[in-house]
């Protein structure tokens, strides 16, 4: 791993989960797993965050909240769907209030399976997200260089 890489900050939002994955996300921050040694800090502010961890599926009421948080995050950003509910709707797929997994609302980059997702699994997902973040940052840089001569051209949306 690159020692001088940026420390990514994560933001956690509970879409509509059963809490199982939420407490596992919190357990990642606590002494047994301690993701802070990888430079990862849990922040409450979407504008500070690079990685969005979403647990639980999306329902009618949480959809605008999730979309707002996603739009507030600065580019490049990575979305990690933690748990089965976030990935596919899981056991609540047939509920009347379900919109489906997180990918029904915002693009998801990494799916972390497990019900509830184990802390090791979540950490694997976050480490994958780091690599992806680095790749997205490079892509963004090359794209910016490519569009530099024509400043009037449209800003590409990711």
């Amino acid at each position: 791993m690159n020692l001088f890489r940026k420390s990514p900050w994560i933001i956690h939002y509970d879409g509509a989960s059963c809490n199982g994955c939420d407490i596992e996300v919190l357990a990642c921050l606590t002494p047994r797993y301690d993701v802070e040694r990888l430079g990862i800090i849990n922040t409450g502010n979407p504008k500070h965050a690079d990685i969005l961890l979403i647990t639980g599926y999306i329902n009618e009421q949480s959809q605008p909240v999730v979309r707002t948080i996603y739009e507030q995050m600065p580019d490049p950003k990575v979305v990690v769907a933690v748990g089965i509910c976030a990935s596919s709707g899981g056991i609540f797929r047939d509920c009347y209030n379900t919109k489906g997994g997180v990918d029904s609302t915002i693009p998801v980059d990494i799916y972390v399976p497990g019900c509830a997702a184990r802390p090791e699994s979540i950490m694997d997902g976050v480490v994958q997200a780091l690599d992806l973040l680095e790749r997205k940052r490079k892509e963004k840089k090359t794209r910016r260089r490519a569009i530099a001569p024509t400043p009037t051209s449209e800003v590409p949306t990711p």
């Binding site: 596919s88 980059d109 990494i110 799916y111 972390v112 399976p113 184990r118 699994s121 997902g125």
Partner: peptide, 8 residues
Amino acid sequence: YTTPMQMK
């Protein structure tokens, strides 16, 4: 456990 994946 299953490892995280980027595609379904």
